[in-house]
Design a binder for these strands. Structure first.
Lengths: 165, 165
DNA sequence: TTAATTGCAAATGGTTTGCAATATT
DNA sequence: AATATTGCAAACCATTTGCAATTAA
């Protein structure tokens, strides 16, 4: 639904390579198997690592390589990979559809400004976020791996028009 | 499910009073009516303004005052109030259950630390957030009304146990 | 052989919708 | 009278689950 092309985003770099190896390793640790289906799902997520994929998306992507794969298998695999810490559930909103993204650590923190009037979504990088995360780490002994930071309000235009400044 | 007592959180203060008035006003503007059912839903949300209420929660809360109210009505009302800007959809969660909270401006910013291992959700107040919001305001001309700040990672215990520190 | 995995189809569960009955302006 | 609103039940739809068949160790 949301996603267009399959192997879109190019080749896997160091991180993805490491991720794949870790996947195999962690599966083996628990006596689980890296089946063709699981491999296909992993490949799809890595190839589209800049996207937030739904189960339906993944099925669409691997339709060619694994035409007969069952939805349930994809659901189970995504859930499994998430529990293993390789994927994140990302909640980019509104509906009930679950989306996943690759769990690549050490990404630079950013946040979204979401206008309640016009719906504008602006992505903002703020170096203060690093300071904030450092402090959350040291003061709460919490190891941050990912974040979802959304600020709701009114963009310049809408704030002006609706007199909310 | 999530919520225990009904009129728990005490009397409405200035902000809630203002909110109720605004609700009536905005409804009238659009030729909509403040029915008993809508009033009951609003009351429930205001009385539990420190909670994130699901539809089921609301039904439970107003069971006494409006025993015969239909689920659909509550769903429709919550959705309506959200579109009017009086409620926020808050997505603190795993499941597909939609939760709402009162849209009270100028609340003190906080964020949630969510452990990917054990599921712990810790609410943290950080004064640095105010600085951050100030900066988002001045640098982006964005008027912040609410925020959803979630940091995912590993709590002290789990980080230790899984060797991710 | 034993245990994990899959695909299918049925079940689940929160949410939405069609519609006739009711209430409000 | 015209329109908004409600309650009910059915429909929806993403996700989960039971289970028998299949596959890998």
């Amino acid at each position: 639904m949301t996603v267009n092309t399959a192997q879109a985003s190019g080749t896997a770099d160091h991180k993805e390579q490491h991720l794949l190896e870790e996947a195999v390793e962690r599966l083996k640790e628990k006596g689980l198997r890296l089946t063709e289906q699981r491999q296909a799902v992993l490949d799809a997520v890595v190839a589209n690592r800049d996207q937030h994929l739904s189960c339906e998306d993944v099925v669409g992507i691997i339709k060619h390589s694994k035409p007969g794969i069952g939805q349930a298998t994809v659901y189970r695999t995504l859930s499994l990979l998430e529990k293993m810490g390789l994927l994140f559930k990302s909640d980019l909103d509104d509906d009930c559809v679950r989306h996943y993204e690759l769990c690549l650590q050490d990404e630079e923190a950013h946040c979204h400004l979401i206008c309640l009037e016009c719906g504008l979504v602006a992505e903002v990088k703020e170096d203060l976020l690093n300071t904030l995360e450092d402090r959350l780490h040291t003061k709460n002994d919490f190891v941050i791996v990912n974040r979802s930071l959304k600020f709701y309000g009114y963009c310049k235009q809408c704030a002006h028009q609706t007199g909310r400044e």
